[in-house]
Amino acid sequence: MLLLQNLSNALILACTYILMAAGLTMVYGVLKVLHIAHASVYTVGAFVGVLAFTRLGNFWVALAIAMFVSGIFGVLIYRSTYFYLLNSPRTVPLIASVGMFVMFTDLLQKPFLMGAYQRAFPAGGAGLPAVKTALFSFTAKQVLILLVTVILLAIVYVILTRTKLGLSWQAASMDRDMASAVGVNLNQSIAANFFLGSALAGAAGVLVGVYNNSVFATMGDLPSYKAFIIIVLGGMGSLPGAILASLILAIVENFLVASIGYVLPRDSIAFLVLILMLMFRPNGLLGRE
């Protein structure tokens, strides 16, 4: 019973990782840029979400607004920075990305934006019911997270496999110049990719904000590296890999804590797993090459 409860809690934790990592791995697939500032998009998403929610009182509208604004924010990041650095060595956009992340975090902490204090995000389960069985239970918040994650992943899956846009991303991830030569509008394709990936990060920010009932300027610190580790584990650029890695990491974290306690900070488990992966399967679980 305790086992199943731990497993269901781990599943919810995994959902919060998946949305964040999915966006990151999509961006990596097309651009081959390690987009650390993705975590800023996540924070902005949560912030916009909480603002919209407190003004409008409807979680679903707030989620839509947050995802849209995050998407635009992501595209702006691309157009203002990475766009100019695509042909530089890969460490250049990486460093730009880290710089942006630090800058946005400090900026968001200014009193006229998010300020120093945590804000509550009291959306509860957005009206969804809690699920209680003899063996395990989900709170309304957990049902909400599971539902939103599954819906968003289904949408992403359809776009990736059934649309021209998805095809153009696949082409671009194989060879940008070649894709361009055979008629893919790279600029539009990459911008759309950033928009979708960033909207997912924004949704992740909103869901985590609701789950922990708190939104704050430095909330992206942790996801900035954890999402990154997840996409390395899963295989850079692989969406199923990111999902699998999120699940594994969440389960390992949950069960280690439940069985031996916090022998080491829970969040450092990810790094241990990363080291093992790089030693034995450097291309990740589902990576190609």
Partner: peptide, 10 residues
């Protein structure tokens, strides 16, 4: 650890 958000297993 400081900053922990997930207490359910404990």
């Amino acid at each position: 650890p400081l900053g922990e958000t997930e207490f359910r297993p404990i």
